[in-house]
Nucleic acid binder design. Sequence first.
DNA 1: CAGGAGGGGCTTTTT
DNA 2: GCCCCTCCTG
Length: 657
Amino acid sequence: MKQYRGALLDSELNNAIMEKMDELLAQLNPEQQKAVKITRGPILILAGAGSGKTRVITFRIAYLIRSKHVDPKNILAITFTNKAAGEMQSRIQNLLGSNHDVWIRTFHSTCAKILRGGAERIGIKRNFVIYDEYDQISVVKECLSDLEIDTKAFSPAYVAAVIDNVKENLAPASAIEDDTLRHIYNLYSKKLSEYNALDFDDLIMKVVELFKTDRDILEYYQNKFKYILVDEYQDTNRAQYVLTKMLAERHRNLCVVGDDDQSIYSWRGAEIKNILDFEADFPDTTVIKLQQNYRSTRRILKAASAVVSNNEYRKSKTLWCDNETGEKIVFFDADDSYTEAAYVARKIMELRLKDVSLGDIAVFYRVNYQSRLFEECFITYRIPYEVVGSLRFYERAEIKNVLAYLRVINNPDDAVSLKRIINIPSRKIGHETIEKITAYCEKEGMSIYEALHEIESIKRINTGTRKRIRDFTKMMDRHIKSQQQVDIYELAMQVVKDSGYLSSLSEDRTERDYIRRKNVEELLISMKDYVRERPDATLNDYLEEVSLRSDIDDWNESTERVNLMTLHNAKGLEFDVVFITGFEDGLIPHYKSQKDPKQYEEERRLLYVGITRARKQLYMTYARQRDMFRAGPSYTDLSPFYDEIPRDVMCAGYSFD
DNA sequence: CAGGAGGGGCTTTTT
DNA sequence: GCCCCTCCTG
């Protein structure tokens, strides 16, 4: 009887869900419906800007679960940022009205999670640390100095780029033709494994390695992920492509979504050919093109299409729309960058009087340092603003210092972090001492942290220094022990107090130190929140999350503030009013991208991305003079892309005085 | 041997 | 403008 009632309720519930699903599907155009309903086999969804992509993806996942009764555990959805993942997570939750176990993650966090489970299989310890680009540069510098290579001949940044390139393409070290670079690469790899650290690209590469080494693990994930969806497919690199292919091989229910016109990460190894060649890779692919734009006015769309149509290397498609004609694009030709900023500020004041919400306005620029002028100007005009990016919170020195302490506690082999904090605050343990310890490590084949415990056996260190090292080591050992007993917030609190770091920041009276202290406090508060939200999380979990967090993730959309960000950060977002600033030759396109035609086309796509973010009104500004930091003001030329925008959708902005 | 002071260098975009 | 490296001082 009971069972019968249950079944009845279930079927009622099901009917309600099916009705709701039908209702949802009715909101979609025929192409979008196809994109939701074709669930089997490989599918390529070419989703033009503003074509309702996010909606299609979320409906698709809801449809799989509700209408096709797919277990949420069997779905993997890959997004470009954690923020996009979080948004998708909550949208699906809203659609389904309950929690679900769909894996919605970035490539990097997916891989980190897989490695936490099976890394030991390929000789990586479970508590590995993830190195960001600055940590990576530190290791490269160590390598260069160990090998006595002049940093002028091989700049650390260049070497890091070579290393990334090799890994992004899953190439073996032997593929590096230059002997010196190959040696550096090998030493770099050796150091990372000694430090029990992985860099960003390792996360992907090591998972591929793991899958090749252990068929059982691969099969486990192949069976787990019966349905795979990859968003922003145009921005995947070779390693990510191989990984995706491995995972999808068994069930072949792979849906990739992207827009070749919005591929803007080739410099990070992204291969636009992954999306262009998808049909060749999977011959039975269903191709769906979403070409109706629901976002922008006709004029904005016309400008965007005209610009991008100058690219050779693309799948041909035409975006169209039913939307309003809209206002003309306003182009403002400023005498210099200060006038440009003032123009933007005064326009924003004007918009504000017309009841445009500040949160619906965005200012885009090509490079982060352009934000400074706008910030200064907005402060004088009392315009609330928020900078997304630039000085990233987790990359600030004081934040990295605190995290470095925690990283060492979590993984004492992490030499980069250990060297970072051993003399912060000053304990009078300097370079010379570190050098001696490192030499000892080499000889004895141990980690620095181990060597610190044998400090008495290391020669030529004076007694005072020895004592200070003993004190430091004892303190760290204490924290390593107490790690299990207290939560992350408590631990961090103890560490910043015990190490003297917090008081070292409090002693100084400069404005900067005050800001630093505030930042550390902010970090501690965020840890408290983290502990409250995820009481079971380990220190390792926390550090991983922080390493993979980008700052667009923390950005809060609904605030009443003007949004300032780079064109790259603007991807995936939309605003009523958009300002594209610095519309100059050398910035858009960036001067470093002018020689290579492929890169030049990418700059055009970047502009395309910027233009298509605007719903109602677009402003573009150009400064005839711009301060190139030290060299004083220099004269600029208008962007060559200016001529690609049809004259009839544009008009000149006026100056205010 | 640590750490401050001063000079040279360079800055695209970021998971 | 700022950061990093090097050299010199204490």
